[in-house]
Amino acid sequence: MTDARAAAAAVVDPEIRVITIDELGILRAVDEEPGTGRVVVTITPTYTGCPAMDVIREDIRRALAAAGHPDAEVRTVYHPAWSTDWISDSGRAKLEAAGIAPPAPRGDDTVVPLTLAVRCPRCGSPETTQISRFGSTACKALWRCRSCSEPFDHLKAL
């Protein structure tokens, strides 16, 4: 039997398969009830309408069952609201390595995010422009590098 927390934490995001739900900051808690062995996993969505949530819930249950925890419940909470500030340093590095520019730190969430210079994940140039404020998933925008001409995804600061 593997540690329930480790099993849940290793589940990858179904839309950005290089990063785990733990690194993305959507895994909030893994609690094991003493005695019964029942596991309660708490997650929070990146966006309210994120269509990946059902898959994530299933993947967590499957990972826990494979790790010897068949009695598992996945709860979804909305408070406190997910922020890109919760993405771990290792998560940011993985995003960048996969060609997705990680979000700038947001700080106080009561203000509308500023658009800071986004560095090209391929060549590192800060000479980039936004092509579209929305991208292939709810959490991304589409950018292009003016130095190497490559288009790339950017995780929107939220």
Binding site: Y47, G49, S132, F134, S136, A138
Partner: peptide
């Protein structure tokens, strides 16, 4: 097209 669909998705989520 992508922007409006994404905004619709946010509204649906709420």
């Amino acid at each position: 097209d992508i922007a409006l669909a994404n905004i619709a998705l946010d509204q649906l989520g709420a």
